[in-house]
């Protein structure tokens, strides 16, 4: 298989890489670009630990090919904080003890940010359904839902 050359933007930076035609974006991010914040929990799109956004759309990066993102704008967990300023979601997750092992946390934060961009004032039910694609085995989700609501309120200026 001949490698492909791809030009893209990741977390605001211009990035070029080569990848195999069948190589998932997740493998490109982790193995070629050393952006290991996105995790592989399943490789089949069932756990959400590899969540990133591509052109603003929330996706499982294990289900997207590296070859598909030529010209796209990608954001990962590594692009969530603004320099040394954490995003309100990141702060709320730390303050609210919304993770234990933390391996699902990057994917959940990326997904929660995508939710709040669409719906700045979700109900708990809406948060629970939006995050239903992100598995967490440690917390029982309770503190995650609460932390998303704390961040949402802060972002609304409430």
């Amino acid at each position: 298989m001949k490698s492909l050359h791809v030009s893209t933007t990741i977390n605001g930076d211009p990035v070029e890489f080569i990848c195999d035609p069948d190589e998932p974006l997740l493998d490109v991010l982790r193995n070629r670009l050393h952006l290991t914040g996105a995790k592989e929990g399943c490789g089949t799109g069932d756990c959400g630990a590899c969540s990133v956004t591509v052109n603003g759309r929330l996706v499982c990066s294990c289900l997207v090919l590296g070859a598909e993102v030529d010209g796209a704008v990608i954001t990962t967990i590594e692009g969530m904080a603004d320099g040394d300023q954490l995003h309100p979601l990141q702060r709320a997750f730390i303050d609210g003890a919304a993770f234990q092992c933390g391996v699902c946390t990057p994917g959940i934060l990326v997904a929660a940010k995508a939710l709040l961009e669409k719906n700045p004032d979700p109900t708990d039910e809406e948060v629970r359904y939006w995050l239903a694609g992100n598995l967490c085995r440690c917390t029982g989700y309770d503190k995650i839902i609460a932390a998303v609501q704390v961040a949402a309120a802060e972002m609304r200026g409430a």
């Binding site: 982790r30 050393h34 952006l35 290991t36 914040g37 996105a38 995790k39 592989e40 990962t76 967990i77 590594e78 969530m80 904080a81 954490l86 979601l89 990141q90 997750f93 730390i94 303050d95 003890a97 993770f99 933390g102 391996v103 946390t105 990057p106 934060l109």
Partner: peptide, 23 residues
């Protein structure tokens, strides 16, 4: 009391190194 955990920032920024993250 309920202070922030020492590995908190690592785990919300993707900096924390898990089993598959080392090379």
């Amino acid at each position: 009391s309920r202070p922030n955990r020492p590995d908190g920032v690592d785990k919300v920024t993707g900096r924390a190194q898990y089993g598959a993250d080392a090379t």
